[in-house]
Amino acid sequence: MTTSRREQLVVQAVPGTHGTTVTARGHELTIDEAPRYGGHDSGANPVEHLLAGIAAASLVVLRLLGEVAIAESAALTVSASLNVDRVMGADDGPVVELIRLDWEVANAAHAERLRAALPHLASRRPGQALIDAASTSTEEVSVRESTAACG
């Protein structure tokens, strides 16, 4: 019987004068809200950090799946519709109503390979539970338009 590797991940959050300072392995992040939610807008908000984590984790897992060339040239935009009233305790609907993952790749061959890899990526992606908890989620792949100048 083989034992799976485990890694303990730890972050520490402390309030600061302008947002929250989070430390992970000596790396500091400033997390803050927009002024309309009582913050100073001195950093991305907590949900934006979650989305950034999903985007980065997606690219890492894509590399682990052997699609290094795609991971190194793809652009991934992750967007979500947050039910702010649920966060504030005034609604009982899903916290995240819609989450979209929009991949843009260099060419049609990359698009085909990425589409084939998406189920494997989803089964291994850290943060997939947030995507699965959204009332609606989509993951789309498109080919980047050529930026070559027309002459």
Rank of each mutant, 00 (worst) to 15 (best):
V78E: 14
V105R: 04
S135P: 01
L76I: 09
G26Y: 09
M1K: 05
L82V: 15
G93M: 10
A122K: 07
L114W: 00
I54H: 01
A117E: 08
S42I: 00
L82M: 13
A80N: 07
D92L: 14
L101V: 12
R86L: 04
Q8T: 07
T20D: 08
A106N: 01
S123T: 12
R86V: 08
G93V: 11
R6C: 02
V84I: 15
L29M: 14
C150T: 09
V22E: 06
H110R: 12
R36I: 06
S73R: 13
A129H: 09
V14E: 15
A71L: 04
A111K: 10
R115V: 10
L118Y: 02
G43T: 08
A111N: 07
T136S: 09
L82N: 00
V105T: 02
I31D: 05
Y37Q: 12
D32A: 05
S137W: 15
V10E: 14
A116Y: 06
L29I: 10
H40A: 13
A90W: 07
S142T: 14
P15I: 12
R25G: 09
A80F: 04
D92V: 12
V141Q: 00
A13F: 03
A71W: 03
P94T: 15
S42D: 07
A116N: 13
E104K: 12
T77C: 10
H40G: 10
I54W: 00
A108H: 14
L82Y: 12
R124P: 01
C150R: 11
H49I: 08
P119N: 13
R115I: 00
T23L: 01
A134E: 05
A149R: 14
S58C: 03
A108N: 11
E112Y: 04
D85T: 05
V22N: 05
E7S: 10
L82F: 14
D102Y: 13
A57S: 15
A106C: 05
T3Y: 05
V105C: 03
E145N: 04
D32W: 03
E67N: 10
V84Q: 12
G53L: 01
A134G: 07
P126K: 03
L50K: 03
I54G: 06
L65M: 05
Y37P: 02
V143Y: 08
S4C: 11
M88H: 13
D91A: 15
A90F: 09
L62F: 06
A129L: 13
V84L: 13
L118Q: 07
N45T: 08
A109C: 01
R36F: 02
A80P: 10
A44K: 03
M1W: 04
N83K: 04
S4A: 13
G16P: 09
E104G: 08
H49Y: 15
A133W: 03
S81G: 09
P46S: 01
S137F: 08
P35L: 12
T77W: 08
A34I: 00
I99S: 08
L101W: 05
R25W: 06
T138A: 15
D92W: 10
V141A: 09
A80L: 05
L65Q: 13
G89I: 04
L101C: 08
V87S: 11
V14I: 10
E112C: 04
R5Y: 04
V47Y: 15
D41V: 11
R6G: 11
S79C: 03
